[in-house]
Amino acid sequence: MTASLIESDEALVAQVLAGDEDAFIPLMARYQRSLLRLARNYVRDAALAEDVVQDTWMGFLRGIEKFEGRSTFKTWLFRVLANRAKSRAVKEARYVPMADEGDPAPDGDAFDPAGGWRVPPREWKVTPERLLLSTELLDLVHEALSGLPSSQRTVVSLRDLEDLDADEVCNILGISETNQRVLLHRGRTKLRAALAARLES
């Protein structure tokens, strides 16, 4: 067991597909939480999200979706999940397309016509210790993240929560590099604004 915990994804995948049940335990443990988080970006219902994650593992185990090593296993797995979650959300008639939400640029009115700050950012009443340790701030950022439009939330989550790079995110979500950057920028800008609203006073 201990040895298998540090094995690469690809090694575990090969063992699992060869019928090794024990190898599936660390593989699933490694990604279960991330998959659930990603699924929740598409389907809000927790039980439905768990179904989607379970179907994703089943699809992998049954070879319905085949991992062929063209990307990392993680990227491949996230993409399969995203596609399944998306079709599930479409069925539930609550899917919002990634590209366009008619969302105006955030901080649009923060600048004067010359491009200078109309409302300069004010200092946050927060110590470095609080930023590192406060659970109240985590609640605040969690709430702000949940309030983002789903496409922005998904991109911010994959980049900043799951620590994936831009190429991986484009690959998983099937969006362009430009689109990825815009969604990330808008999402982060809104998160900063949400924190500012609470920390400036």
Partner: peptide, 22 residues
């Protein structure tokens, strides 16, 4: 402040409160 917001999201990811372990 933008960096601090991003740092908080990263902390959130490590905190375990975005999803519980089964």
């Amino acid at each position: 402040q933008m960096r601090q917001a991003v740092a908080l999201v990263r902390r959130l990811g490590r905190s375990g409160r975005t999803s519980r372990r089964p």
